[in-house]
């Protein structure tokens, strides 16, 4: 059962981020500011930090699977999200050995992971020619709003999932 529970939550976040973007009217935000929900990445970072042990890769595999689905369903170009999410999650996987696990550390991981993934996605699209926005405009109009909106999401799901993830981890170890 537990094997399917985490992907199920991932899938719910995956679907709801596109519906959320469609339903929240753009006029609610400032016109030229764009925020991109990376909810699956945030949840995968939570799994990596709190559920995965030293040598298990549940978060990484889930993140990669849904990154590929994002590429397939939401964009035309396969592989960009796959690479960006993969590297970001692997970075978190390596870093978590050196730090204690609490909210501040997860916050740090999320900001680092998000920024790395976003900048990587931007540079890959820039190389391909999908995007022609200058880096400064990108930084102000997209990266910062994206970080803020996803950190907000982290604060919402953190209290809901954190105890469960830790509990499942110890149940698994028994």
């Amino acid at each position: 059962m537990r094997v399917f529970l985490l992907p199920l939550f991932m899938f719910i976040f995956f679907v709801s981020q596109s519906v959320a973007v469609e339903l929240i009217p753009q006029s609610f935000w400032l016109d030229s500011l764009y925020y991109i929900p990376h909810w699956t990445l945030i949840f995968a970072i939570l799994i990596v930090t709190f559920y995965d042990r030293e040598h298990s890769y549940v978060g990484l595999i889930n993140g990669l699977a849904f990154a590929f689905l994002t590429d397939l369903v939401y964009t035309n170009i396969l592989g960009v999200y796959f690479l960006a999410y993969g590297l970001a999650l692997y970075m978190v996987h390596v870093l978590k050995r050196y730090l204690h696990k609490n909210l501040l550390v997860v916050l740090l991981f999320s900001i680092l992971g998000l920024a790395a993934a976003e900048v990587l996605i931007y540079s890959l699209y820039f190389i391909i020619g999908q995007v022609d926005l200058s880096f400064n405009a990108y930084l102000i109009n997209r990266l910062i709003p994206t970080l803020l909106i996803n950190i907000l999401f982290l604060f919402i799901i953190y209290p809901i999932f954190i105890k469960k993830l830790v509990k499942w981890k110890y149940e698994l170890e028994k």
Binding site: V15, E22, T70, Y74, T75, N76, V131, R142
Partner: peptide, 15 residues
């Protein structure tokens, strides 16, 4: 009816 919008805004696609 439009049911979703691509969260990746570089693409400007809707479903």
């Amino acid at each position: 009816s439009v049911v979703a919008r691509s969260p990746e805004r570089w693409f400007q696609q809707v479903t």
